[in-house]
Design a protein around this nucleic acid. Structure first.
Lengths: 150, 150
DNA sequence: ACTGAAAGCGATGCAGA
DNA sequence: TCTGCATCGCTTTCAGT
């Protein structure tokens, strides 16, 4: 992991479909070693995947909420069951376990407020071990899933 | 935006470097119309960009925190100044304005706790209009920036 | 570990239905 | 709007330094 590798990661976070030819020009190296470095970054897990960034509104997903979860039981089995249940809900884009209170943050997208209300009532509020939910509507994306800093 | 377009978006969220040839097979169409549809999805903004998903640890970014921000002043000019200042901090991966309290959520990555402490003291705690910060360390990614649901 | 070249394969554009 | 084809460029591998 030298400066060239870091530059490759930076460029591919900005444009994940860069051709190796173009990438080679940007890192000032010929095609072969650029190709070799890229494959190695993929192999060793520095590059986890490639993704198209899709506009949620194009899919009619116009509503986003953050949910703060406080757990009632904190034993290992309950947390595992909670986390597996959360991972099975497709509307959950991000779920993080936190230190302190709340125990979890969930980032959730739905088509609209009504769909969210249904999701909370039918699914979220009966997650295993969950004691209390506090949810907040997102008004605006100020910084929207930016690349990692160098 | 028909079912084929939705399928294209779903596939490219799973693998943003799919070749058009491979994509065409997955959506059961020949290469030309698949190509045409893809370019149209890019042109109309349904596909906003392509990204390599990089493992933060590969770049030594081992620390993540969530910061809840309560504003002291809420006039338009102050909020604008706050949002612009936040957007200029490279460690901020996500910033959202929320309804209710807190006013903003920030998702922040740094190399370690010490670097975060420095960032909070030197930068975050003097953001324009900011009244109060509450920060929480992230213990674990349960669901890590998943594709949008279909 | 990089350079340069050769071969295979995909992207892109076009004719025809 | 689709299929099928032709051209061009990129990816991938390999010999040489």
């Amino acid at each position: 992991m030298d400066d060239v590798d870091r530059k490759i990661l930076a460029e591919l976070q900005l444009d994940g479909r860069l051709t190796i030819t173009e990438l080679a020009e940007r890192v000032q190296l010929s095609v072969s070693p650029t190709h070799r470095r890229l494959r190695e970054l993929e192999r060793n897990g520095a590059i986890q995947s490639y993704r198209a960034v899709v506009n949620p509104e194009a899919l009619g997903l116009n509503f986003e909420a953050l949910v703060f979860v406080t757990m009632g039981e904190e034993d290992r089995a309950t947390l595992l069951a909670f986390e597996e249940a959360v991972a099975r809900i497709p509307n959950v884009r991000l779920a993080q376990r936190l230190f302190g209170d709340p125990d979890y943050l969930l980032r959730i997208v739905t088509t609209d407020l009504a769909a969210y209300a249904r999701l909370q009532d039918e699914t979220l509020s009966s997650l295993p071990g969950m004691q209390r939910l506090t949810s907040t509507m997102v008004m605006k994306q100020v910084v929207d899933d930016r690349p990692l800093p160098s």
